[in-house]
Design a protein around this nucleic acid. Structure first.
Length: 596
RNA sequence: GGGGCGGUAAUUCAGUUGGUUAGAAUGCCGGACUGUCGAUCCGGAUGUCGCGGGUUCGAGUCCCGUCCGCCCCGCCA
């Protein structure tokens, strides 16, 4: 039979007791982290959210409690009353904040029992992730996981306080809303009272925050869930949280300033890390050219160098034939890569091939000479020039790809990241923020039609607007991405705030009059009633917190995340519903797709 | 939709060219123990080898299919 806690009031937390409390009567409540039964004496580590305190059961102090303590197992929930005592000499535990004291139990109450656990509550084990998710409530008891949620809480709290001081209003927007075209697949919610009609969960509160600007709120923010029905990755979940912001009467510089100050304040107060501002700016074009991606990890160099002109003068067929087909030849100097083994280089080759290139030409530089299976295809002069062009020194490894333009760029981008990992260049604990600016407004899709590079509400640079008709691809947008250590943290833009331009963009995107009115009529109309110039940004909270802690997967900082199949192993959602529910929603199931 | 890696005790893993009764560590259960803190010592129990089929005298091991997990491409922020 279990005990009740009634009559006992918790006086302290398990993490706070120290020598100042010596001699005090205290009541602690928590979980049994571990029991060490010495027969005559029983020690147990009592754990709550704040830490651990050692409790001692001594029959000379309380025979009853000592006897009862023998029944205790790990993760039982107990209350103890007792006196704080100094530990005997030589038994102090330096690893515990409470390690100088212990509580001599006078009364023990067992508030709840626990079955044998599927795994120990410990940071020392490496556990399968599915198991952790199925028993997430146990996984989250592990101190490491608790700290992650605390970090997330402190981050959100700091952001809220900062933006409040800056005059922002946190305003909620609907979850049951209309499909807005961010480009991703919507999660749909059937309407019971409107047969055959659906709400969509928001991919972001984009239109609502713009409407709030029209409404004169001037500075809006929200820490809000966004939903996208796309395939999952380590940094992608079907629901993710954004720090969503929008301001009136601003230009990109105002957003940069605000976000930089926010991030600096956040890192200082939560991590005690000092960041330098302003964050560097890099143009979209320059980023692709140098790093082969629009979200470069700039913790290390290894920039991409074009040697097409030089390659064209050689007799190396792999180079010259790629050039003849209109491609290019580019390479990376993997500084210190000379120490990589044949096996390492083979792995790099495999990577390059899996990413779509045909292979990689490599050259090791050592003592001024060059080691490479391709050496014989080059004249001494050419090799010399190669080395000087790549600024190669002893112990360096030069890697070249020859192919179509976009293949070379993308593959070298991947190769660069892999080299960063292999050579240990991407240090943990370093935070390289930067802004990517000057994105194109529009991009051609596979069918040769113009598509919004970000979303259809981004403002073009004024000087580029005349090109909209003739050369849409050359129009740059007032769009900016915030990147941290090679991860895209956030995207924002200055928005279009007058109807005429917004309609023009919709038309270029191939959205007809009818569709424009049915999907965006309400929005276009709002722009006609004195919409102020405005812009904003949304920062991914999950990625931000994961980045702060140096964790690869955002699942580490989400209390109840989903697996790659978008399944929650704990609740087993999604799951079938009964026919009555379906009938009310006017929905029938295609049995060939869902044969349960 | 595609590529890669994985699935063996409660957990983390080992398991040789296919060969007798599938192991280790941790955890768990019982016992001993008054200064432990990853307690120690003695003893013990625990398997749908993911699932289905095939090859074989014989399959954890080989083949085919399938499900699940992770990483990636496509897709997407």
């Amino acid at each position: 039979m279990l005990d009740t806690a009634s009559g006992l009031k918790r006086t302290h937390n398990c993490g706070e007791l120290n020598k100042k409390h010596l001699g005090k009567q205290v009541v602690l409540m928590g979980w049994v982290n571990v029991r060490r039964d010495h027969g005559g004496l029983i020690f147990l580590d009592l754990r709550d959210r704040t830490g651990i305190t050692q409790v001692v059961f001594n029959p000379q102090i309380s025979r009853g409690s000592h006897q009862k303590a023998e029944e205790i197992r790990n993760e039982y929930v107990i209350a103890i009353r007792g006196k704080v005592a100094e530990r005997p000499p030589g038994t102090v535990n330096q690893n515990l904040s409470t390690g100088q004291i212990e509580v001599l139990a006078e009364e023990l109450r067992i508030l709840n029992q626990a079955k044998d656990l599927p795994f120990e509550i410990s940071d020392k084990l490496e556990l399968g992730e599915e198991l952790r998710l199925r028993y997430r409530y146990l996984d989250l008891r592990r101190p490491e996981m608790r700290e992650k949620l605390i970090l997330r809480h402190r981050t959100a709290k700091t952001v809220r306080d900062f933006l409040d001081k800056e005059g922002f209003l946190e305003i909620e927007t609907p979850f049951l809303t209309k499909s807005t075209p961010e480009g991703a697949r919507d999660y749909l919610i059937p309407s019971r009272v409107n047969p055959g009609k659906f709400y969509a969960l928001p991919q972001s509160p984009q239109l609502f925050k713009q409407l709030l600007m029209v409404a004169g709120m001037e500075k809006y923010f929200q820490i809000v869930k966004c939903f996208r029905d796309e395939d999952l990755r380590a940094d992608r979940q079907p629901e993710h949280t954004q720090i969503d912001m929008e301001m009136s009467f601003v230009e990109p510089e105002d957003i940069f300033n605000l976000v930089e100050n926010l991030i600096v304040h956040l890192f200082k107060s939560v991590l005690d890390v000092a960041l330098k501002i302003p964050f560097p700016h890099l143009s979209y074009e320059e980023s692709l050219k140098t790093y082969g991606t629009d979200k470069p990890d700039t913790r290390f160099g290894l920039g991409i160098v074009d040697i097409s002109d030089l390659a064209g003068k050689t007799n190396f067929k792999i180079f010259t034939s790629a050039l003849q087909k209109g491609g290019k030849v580019q390479g990376i100097n993997a500084k210190g890569g000379g120490k990589l083994s044949k096996k390492d280089i083979k792995d790099l080759e495999d990577l390059v091939i899996s990413q779509g290139a045909k292979g990689v030409a490599w050259f090791k530089v050592a003592e001024g000479s060059i080691e490479s299976p391709f050496k014989k295809f080059f004249k001494g002069e050419e090799l010399k020039e190669l080395v000087s062009r790549m600024e190669a020194k002893d112990e360096d490894l030069l890697l070249f790809i020859a192919d179509k333009d976009d293949v070379v760029t993308e593959v070298l981008g991947e190769l660069r990241l892999e080299l960063g990992r292999k050579l240990g260049l991407a240090e943990k604990g370093r935070y390289q923020f930067l802004w990517i600016v000057g994105f194109p407004l529009l991009q051609l899709d596979d069918e040769g039609r113009w598509d919004a590079a970000h979303h259809p509400f981004c403002m073009p640079y004024e000087e580029d607007i005349p090109s909209l008709e003739k050369e849409p691809g050359r129009v740059r947008a007032k769009t900016y991405d915030l990147v941290l250590n090679g991860k895209e943290l956030g995207t924002g833009s200055i928005r279009i705030h007058f109807r005429e331009l917004q309609e023009k963009i919709f038309k270029i995107l191939g959205i007809g009059e009818q569709e424009m009115n049915s999907k965006f009529g309400f929005f276009l109309q709002a722009l006609e009633y004195g919409a102020p110039p405005h812009g904003g940004i949304a920062i991914g909270l999950d990625r931000l917190v994961a980045g702060m802690g140096g964790w690869e997967s955002i699942r580490e900082v989400i209390a109840f995340p989903k697996t790659q199949k978008a399944i929650c192993p704990l609740t087993e959602s999604p799951s079938p519903v009964n026919s009555k529910q379906l009938k009310e929603l006017h929905i029938t199931i295609d049995k060939t797709a869902a044969p349960w």
